[in-house]
Design a protein around this nucleic acid. Structure first.
Lengths: 257, 257
DNA sequence: CTCCGTCGTTCCACTCAATGAAACGGGGGC
DNA sequence: GCCCCCGTTTCATTGAGTGGAACGACGGAG
């Protein structure tokens, strides 16, 4: 009689818990640093009870934190763990003093980034007092084809990665002033020859110029890139090339230990 | 005939996957930034096949990375996610310029930390050229009872937390020069009254003095602590009190936005 | 005041994703 | 040759994970 309908039961195609958990974590972004349960469940595409259960466990583990309002935030535990990433804080630790030198000697911003797939991830940023506000955020991603750091990382990346980036037509990218296809290819060759890159890009009207150089490990593999960013109205960017190259070498030596 | 023995089957008491995954991540430490599968399985107390399966999934998700040697490392993806923690990089972003001022104006190291349970977690550290090497690592933990930052965070923490710390007998702690029980209690009262803390501790023979002050939010809740660390042979630490207090207020204002 | 929408939450019958003992192949030391 | 430890694959077993439904609380609109 009591016509019992199937209640719950597994999802059509089961998806590993870990994938879902990291999808939850991935829902946060600079624009959305805090999220309600409903938003989380919506963004991650998970049923509410599932999102709740996962979020609670993540809070218990310290990966998330919960404000009094009930909204969720990324937790400190993740920072503790992430600070052990050799390509992150490990690298940063060695590079920081040299980056400070570079900041005082040159431009408005000094950036340190590493390649992750077909993007550059910003590991550290130092900014001079009263520098132009830039959109670059530590932990954020930037394109490989239209930034100084990106060009360096791309030029010394495996062929496979280069082809993947070159296959895309970037001509619609407003910020990109580095050309596409053959043009970009020539640029990369130049970067390999000179062992530095100079690149301009347009950001909300103003054009910014970056000078970048590779950081290498013992075996001369490029592991990161340092760059100085200056506004176009400043002194000729070429002035900074020797300083950037020198600092990149210094960091390479410090990181080789 | 083919005497089939039960193969595998669930563990005696099933343990959530997420707990295990984070246990794996928690196995890494400053001394052990890279781990082999065997080490991972050993440290996390997981059967080898289970450790392998989890580690592989974490690599797929970017939470771990694998060197050519096969050893595992913390991955960059975690840094990307962690950089969205409001109490981590969010706070840091606002504090950094003021911390630089403080560094140039005063001591050897400038520290920014927040409380996580009964420990202080270091969110940022700036060090002067040629400063004493200190064991403090960004992302690392320090005790609440024996550091300047710790005392500030403890003094303004909920009663519950204070009692938990006070209940422990710290007299065996070699580094602690702040006393225990009633002594420590009096110290905390003083910190609340003065709104700054001065604390010394012994580190490998040399004694270091830190001057710390609270960073507060709009509602005057203490959310972090800034401190300057100087070697004992330097100028009187008290000299730095006004600077530290002023910078703490500046950061409070900047973080209130 | 009532109504309605949305939010976080609990319940629980249903399964498949997760499990780990066993067995395997390969490399390094002795 | 032998042994030992490493990472890996296999597969019978089962409880951890699941989500539709239902609930109480809050708040804004009527």
């Amino acid at each position: 009689m009591t016509e019992r309908r199937a209640r719950g039961g597994r999802p059509a195609r089961g998806e590993p818990v870990l994938d879902r958990a990291f999808r939850l974590l991935g829902c946060f972004s600079p624009d959305r640093p805090t999220l309600s349960l409903a938003a989380l469940s919506e963004l991650a595409g998970l049923p509410k009870p599932t999102a709740l259960r996962l979020a609670r466990k993540l809070v218990e583990l310290g990966a998330l934190e919960q404000a009094e309002s009930g909204d969720y935030t990324i937790g400190l535990r993740l920072l503790e763990i992430a600070s052990l990433a050799p390509r992150g804080h490990g690298l940063r630790e060695n590079a920081l003093p040299y980056m400070e030198d570079l900041l005082h000697a040159t431009g408005q911003h000094v950036l340190l980034s590493v390649r992750e797939g077909v993007a550059a991830v910003l590991v550290e940023r130092l900014s001079a007092r009263g520098a132009h506000r830039v959109g670059y955020r530590v932990g954020g991603r930037m394109p490989l084809h239209s930034t100084g750091n990106g060009l360096v990382l791309l030029a010394f990346a495996p062929k496979r990665v280069q082809e993947e980036v070159l296959a895309v037509d970037w001509s619609a990218d407003e910020e990109n002033l580095n050309g596409t296809g053959a043009e970009l290819r020539a640029r990369l060759a130049a970067v390999r020859r000179n062992r530095f890159a100079v690149s301009s890009r347009r950001k909300r009207g103003v054009s910014l110029t970056s000078v970048a150089a590779p950081v290498v490990d013992r075996r001369k593999n490029t592991i990161a890139a340092v760059s100085v960013i200056t506004g176009s109205e400043q002194v000729a960017p070429a002035t900074h090339i020797p300083a950037v190259v020198a600092v990149a070498r210094a960091i390479s030596r410090a990181a080789a230990l």
